[in-house]
Design a protein around this nucleic acid. Structure first.
Lengths: 250, 250
DNA sequence: CGCAAAGTTGAGGGATATCAACGAGTGTGG
DNA sequence: CCACACTCGTTGATATCCCTCAACTTTGCG
């Protein structure tokens, strides 16, 4: 109860009070175990530290994107929250790991980071940082967003692998693929599966037989129409229902 | 046979021959569906296009990191290759998606990208780009590597979820956690599990009961010693064997 | 001490991997 | 053009893994 209660009472954005120490760029580099190599080191750059109590959230899903955080001590869990309330743990970041990277593209955090013990993080003011690039920064901003977008996608994939049953996985894949085609200007209900069943199975954490059976059952049920690589989604709603029937949800 | 043979005959680094068109920054932005917003747009920046035939690899795991690629048309699969040869499909990138981001940190690609149909990509010269940052670039380089590192981690996680059985997942988790503690200067065989069995189950795509049972069996077998959150790895080799006993490995 | 959350253990069943055989599609060479 | 080889895909029977449900124990905390 303590943890749960604490979790709901979480205060966000509370800066470490007095005695807020800070880290230099070199110290941060050492913490992150990333060599500065030939990178030119600037002076005067420093990073404020912030303490997070056990059970407290550093940020929540949906929060406006602000800084990213380098963990100096302690342990967190990052959680992807489903719309209905089920959740998927994405990782257990510890000292020298980074929190908040997923928020870059959409400009709000997609996940939630909760401290599993009393912890300490260095605040890295990403938005300000991104505006320092100046003239040469356009492409760099691009790449930030691309990387962040990629992270978000893989979180979805981990959710799919971690909390859905076989048929739900296949159904979710078809819906997601449809959306991607739609964004490219193609039909979202009629497209080709360019990959083999084996590749699809590997991607979905299933055998090719299970993939094939799922597609066949959907076909029999009139949810889709499939012949080899040609696929047509007949009943989007039913596919979504199948996805909703997660295995061990919550 | 055709595909397999082609896959092995793959030629890397062959530039598109004559008629190699190119894209402007604005065109690239449109392709990637990323708004340039208030970003200052430079002129004279252009990106060469390259064609990739079906079955050909754009790059291989272990290759020296070079450019990243924006897909203009076609479909790829990205694959994580295990040391012994088993593989895990990580995704099916299509037009407007990016390839090669995972290579930034280690300076060599960790995955392999194979065209599932004849495709076309724009070459984004990342290394050159990274050096343009100038004075304000130190932090930015940081963040690139951090993002890339994070991607690599999540690829491992997808492999774990996609191709290991329950006990192998738990075993792999313990070994990986040990390595992480070791990098922080702690023992890699004696540490605390700061998360609950439920969180661990969510992370590993298992129920808490299955996690608990796996730990108990390891304990009975003398592979580990566990009491609540305290954990000691007794026999690293056996744990590694358990990981090697993947479920549907290939 | 007493309650609530966390963890463990057991019994049973359902979901999915495995094994096996067959059919369909595709490129190759006669 | 057709037979062949080979990959890919489908379908069925069976085994097994892991989830579900349930009871109990342990731990943490007021």
């Amino acid at each position: 109860m303590q943890q749960q209660a604490a979790l709901h009472d979480t205060e966000i954005g509370m800066q470490a009070p007095s005695g807020a120490a800070s880290l230099s760029l070199n110290e941060l580099a050492a913490l992150l175990k990333i060599g500065l190599d030939d990178i030119k080191v600037e002076h005067g750059v420093s990073f404020t530290l912030r303490r997070v109590q056990q059970g407290m959230a550093l940020y929540r899903a949906g929060d406006q994107f602000g800084p990213i955080y380098a963990i100096r001590s302690g342990t967190f869990k990052t959680v992807l929250l489903d719309v209905n309330g089920s959740y998927q743990v994405l990782g257990f970041p510890m000292a020298s790991d980074i929190l908040g990277l997923d928020g870059i593209e959409a400009q709000h955090y997609r996940t939630e980071a909760v401290a599993l013990e009393d912890s300490e993080v260095a605040i890295i003011p990403f938005p300000r940082l991104a505006h320092l690039g100046g003239k040469a920064g356009a492409l760099q901003q691009f790449v930030y967003r691309l990387l962040s977008r990629q992270l978000t996608r893989e979180h979805m994939q981990m959710w799919l692998l971690g909390s859905l049953g076989a048929e739900s996985r296949v159904a979710a894949f078809l819906l997601i693929l449809g959306e991607r085609y739609a964004r490219l200007g193609y039909s979202d209900t009629r497209f080709n599966l360019r990959m083999t069943r084996l590749d699809l199975g590997s991607f979905l954490g299933l055998t090719q037989e299970t993939v094939s059976r799922a597609l066949s059952r959907f076909d029999e049920g009139g949810v889709i129409r499939v012949h080899n690589k040609e696929l047509k989604i007949v009943d989007v709603d039913r596919l979504q229902q199948i996805v909703a029937n997660a295995r061990h949800s919550v």
